[in-house]
Computed example of a mutant assay.
Amino acid sequence: MDIVFYIFTIIATFFFMEFMAWFTHKYIMHGIMWYFHKDHHQHEPGFFEKNDVFFLIFAVPSWLCIMLGLMNSNYYSVCIGAGIALYGFCYFLMHDVFIHQRFKWFRNTNNTYMLALRRAHKIHHKHLGKEHGEVFGMLIVPLKYFKNSRNSIPKRSASK
């Protein structure tokens, strides 16, 4: 029965991290830590950004939960760390790889969710300053971006 609770803990932590990402992005990155996030909105030359420091801010608690959980046989702590790490991996794939193309892996898609995610993130980046931001989450996309994204999917012809 413990395995069910472990899996539930990982999944619950993963979804809780979407709220944490939204909150941190809206109130911390666009607030007191704008110095680090600014170069993400006002791109500067180079592969790395000061904004990449936020990777460490989220990775350290994940690592600590896993390490300390394993050292103390506290597998719920390990699961929390794993949920944070899983969210971080998905965030990396969606944000850095798919949206910003820091790695040229997923360039073309007709997937409605992916197109809506990209469109919502573009709306977020239309504001170069820390004020007046929109769409601070990452994986949960407001419905209005799905409607617009469906219209941008090329229609397939009946004949091949």
Rank of each mutant, 00 (worst) to 15 (best):
I140A: 09
R118K: 14
A158G: 06
M71D: 02
L143E: 13
E49T: 04
F136C: 08
F146C: 05
F19H: 05
I3S: 14
E44A: 11
F15M: 02
M94S: 09
F23V: 15
G31L: 01
F136L: 11
F36G: 02
I11A: 09
I28W: 13
A158L: 05
M29S: 07
F14T: 01
M1G: 14
H132R: 10
N72H: 06
G133D: 00
N148W: 15
M17Y: 11
L117H: 07
S62V: 12
S149R: 12
H95D: 13
G31Q: 03
L64F: 06
I80H: 02
N108V: 06
K38E: 08
Y76S: 12
V60W: 00
M114H: 06
K155Q: 14
R102C: 05
D2Q: 13
F48H: 04
L68M: 12
H125S: 06
L139K: 05
F106A: 11
N72W: 02
F92Y: 14
N74G: 04
S73V: 02
R107W: 08
F103P: 11
M17S: 08
G83D: 00
R102T: 10
A21H: 14
W63A: 08
M33A: 12
I28E: 09
Y145D: 15
D52A: 07
F8S: 09
G81P: 15
Q42F: 03
G137K: 09
M20E: 13
R156G: 06
K50E: 05
H41S: 11
C79F: 00
K147C: 12
H25S: 10
H25C: 10
M138D: 11
M114A: 11
E134W: 03
K104N: 14
V53N: 03
M114Q: 04
W63G: 06
I140T: 09
G88F: 03
D39K: 00
L64C: 05
F136G: 07
I80A: 04
M138L: 09
W105K: 05
P142T: 12
L117T: 10
P142R: 14
E18R: 00
I66V: 13
T13L: 08
F92I: 05
V135P: 05
T24A: 07
S159V: 11
Y27L: 11
L56G: 15
H25V: 07
Q101R: 05
F36P: 05
I80M: 07
H40F: 14
L93W: 04
I66C: 10
K155V: 14
F14G: 03
H127C: 07
M29A: 05
M71P: 00
H25T: 14
I57E: 00
M138F: 04
H41Q: 09
W63P: 00
K26W: 10
T24H: 08
M138V: 09
S157A: 10
Y145N: 11
Y27N: 03
L143I: 10
F19C: 08
